[in-house]
């Protein structure tokens, strides 16, 4: 394994993940590692399969073939089954023989949180409620205890934690605003705050700087770095703003047509001829 050189323990490992929809191979044999405390970028031209990779990691789709490890433990694994047996066009067929599929909520419980490319806040609820709802995943009492307020201590702890989070992330002043009424950049911050409320160890950000002006994306860059340190996170982010990616990511993976075409530090990536070809095209 190429990453044994680093001393940091591995948090997330995607092994030979292939995602095939019918005849389309959206993700082909992706191998990827995120180590503790790292900020890793995932880039690639439009339609390269970046969001598909996110969806596979967070359980929205089970991979057609391959496995996902969290802290060294296999959490998801699958192999081509049913009609996929014949249709399967990816690599490593037959390497995996165990089918273990988890739904997104289970994966979130394992401390992997995400944001979405097109903001998916609970639009008509307030910022406070948005963050409070995300703490539901930690709730231990059952519905009857919660209804009859037997768990009022837990409820209070949740509310206090929400306020603490909001004030750390400088969102306390908008806490009673309806989420959809806020400007775009603020909504992105709230989405990250909401993801943090689930107490993740691994955070996946899908284009956090999309639609932001240079100044806003600069702020976001600092913000991401700050939450990494404050919350002891490992971060995997998809991003198109090269300025952000090159500025903050320690390592970068480049996808094109579902395949990994390059990986390395930002400097290595900038010089990689394959990456330049994928982004700019090349003379015939």
């Amino acid at each position: 394994m190429q990453n044994n050189a680093t001393e940091k323990p591995n948090v997330l490992r995607v092994a030979d993940a292939t995602m095939q929809f019918g005849g389309v191979v959206a993700l082909n044999n992706l191998n990827m590692d995120v180590n503790r405390g790292e900020i890793v970028g995932l880039i690639g031209p439009n339609g390269a399969g970046k969001t598909t990779a996110f969806n596979v990691i967070t359980g929205v789709y089970p991979p057609t073939n391959g496995a996902i490890y969290l802290n060294g433990e296999m959490i998801v694994s699958n192999y081509p089954q049913g009609k996929m047996k014949e249709l399967y066009a990816g690599e490593n067929k037959g390497k995996y023989s165990k089918a273990k599929v988890l739904t997104p909520d289970k994966i979130t419980k394992m401390k992997v949180a995400r944001t979405f490319q097109n903001i998916r806040l609970f639009k008509e609820l307030t910022v406070y409620e948005n963050v409070l709802i995300a703490q539901h995943v930690k709730l231990k009492s059952n519905w009857l205890a919660a209804t009859l307020k037997i768990n009022h201590k837990e409820e209070k702890a949740m509310r206090d934690e929400t306020m603490r989070l909001l004030s750390i992330l400088d969102l306390a002043d908008v806490k009673d605003a309806v989420a959809s009424s806020l400007p775009y950049g603020k909504q992105r911050h709230i989405e990250i705050a909401r993801a943090l409320a689930t107490e993740p160890k691994m955070l996946l950000l899908d284009e956090p700087a999309a639609g932001m002006n240079p100044q806003e994306s600069d702020e976001l860059m600092h913000f991401v770095g700050r939450i990494r340190d404050d919350f002891d996170l490992s971060i995997l982010m998809i991003e198109h703003h090269m300025q952000v990616v090159m500025g903050i990511c320690e390592r970068i993976y480049v996808l094109d047509y579902g395949k990994l075409i390059a990986q390395g530090t930002p400097k290595e990536i900038q010089k990689d001829p394959k990456v330049i070809e994928a982004y700019l095209g090349v003379d015939d």
Binding site: T58, V60, T103, P104, D105, K106, T108, K109, A113, R114, F116, R120, L121, F122, K123, E124, L125, E129, L132, I133, A134, Q135, H136, V137, L139, W143, A146, T147, L148, K149, E155, M158, R194, A195, T198
Partner: peptide, 30 residues
């Protein structure tokens, strides 16, 4: 009883499902 349920954490989870199923699931709500 139902008002108390709606005001509890479970009630908030119901509202989250109403607002956006995909986001609710990503927030760990089964």
């Amino acid at each position: 009883f139902m008002v108390l349920l709606i005001k509890s954490s479970y009630g908030r989870a119901f509202k989250a499902i109403r607002e956006d199923e995909i986001a609710a699931e990503a927030m760990g709500i089964n």
